[in-house]
């Protein structure tokens, strides 16, 4: 048996390397699906909650929207107001005991993290929609766009860009918080760490490895998200087309301080 810290670390990696890798894949799968599905849920919830109601609308539409809005509020409050680890227990064992539904652990994990993230995303997307200057929506209506057209083509693209940092934040939180889903025995990273530690009773070394993997994951993801944000902003350069003598001529403008060929 090894006698040093690094000795234990290398033994654990040697014995459990493929399992750690598997756990990493599960963690990423859960975090990515949870963030993407949660974002879609958040988008839908926020869109429904921002449908404009005019006093002239039929009563059924007004009542329907009011009811939908109430139910969505309940959803958001409940899932933001209880810990995900508790939600996991309630949903997983509740489904098993009262619906006779034995969910596969991975499926249950993705389901739970998605609806949990959706509750947060709903508020984030709503904030993003509010952040887009109201005048642009009015301008969209003034050239005849419907509510849906103005949302789809004008408001949401800007709202999503504005909330990218918050979406990235949710993603990083999901990578870390998916660890609580070990309570429903999904073999994500923390769960693997626990099993590896248990065999030799080397908790420190095992979780040291797990911590390092989590950090590499979140750090890499943060950098990638930053890159995506810069890509979404597009180039700051633009081209002026045509001149008095040559209609094909172009001049490219580089805003001050910007290096050409950027």
């Amino acid at each position: 048996m090894p006698t040093t810290f690094w000795g234990w670390v290398s033994l654990l990696i040697e014995k459990y390397g493929p399992l750690f890798l598997n756990g990493t894949l599960y963690t990423m799968l859960i975090a990515i699906s949870g963030t993407v599905i949660g974002f879609v849920i958040g988008l839908l919830v926020a869109i429904v909650r921002t449908i404009p109601v005019s006093p002239k609308d039929p009563v059924a539409k007004k009542a329907g929207l009011k009811l939908a809005s109430f139910l969505l509020n309940v959803y958001i409050e409940v899932f933001r107001g209880t810990p995900m680890i508790v939600q996991a227990m309630v949903i997983y064992y509740g489904a098993m005991m009262y619906l006779g539904l034995r969910m596969p652990a991975l499926g249950a994990a993705i389901f739970i993290i998605s609806i949990n993230t959706g509750a947060y995303m709903a508020e984030i997307v709503r904030g993003g929609i509010i952040s887009v200057d109201k005048g642009q929506k009015e301008a969209a209506h003034a050239i005849g766009m419907t509510h849906w057209q103005s949302m789809l083509h004008v408001v949401l693209p800007q709202a999503v860009r504005n909330i990218m940092p918050s979406i990235g934040n949710e993603f990083v939180v999901n990578i870390k918080d998916s660890s609580v889903l070990n309570v429903i025995s999904v073999s994500e990273l923390f769960f693997i760490g626990k099993s590896a530690a248990g065999t030799y009773a080397r908790y420190f070394e095992s979780f040291f490895i797990i911590a390092a993997i989590y950090f590499v994951l979140t750090f890499t993801v943060t950098r990638i998200l930053r890159l995506i944000e810069r890509k979404m902003d597009g180039g700051r350069n633009y081209t002026i087309c045509g001149s008095q003598s040559d209609s094909e001529a172009t001049i490219t403008i580089h805003p001050e301080g910007e290096v050409p060929n950027d």
């Binding site: 200057d133 005048g135 642009q136 969209a140 050239i143 005849g144 766009m145 004008v154």
Partner: peptide
């Protein structure tokens, strides 16, 4: 049509796209 005090151009679109969006979507 309407022209606003604060312009209200669509910030996510180029100048050209600002002028084509309504034509494509509405007309």
């Amino acid at each position: 049509g309407m022209v606003f005090q604060s312009f209200n151009l669509f910030a996510n679109m180029t100048v050209l796209a600002n002028c084509t969006a309504g034509q494509k979507l509405v007309l």
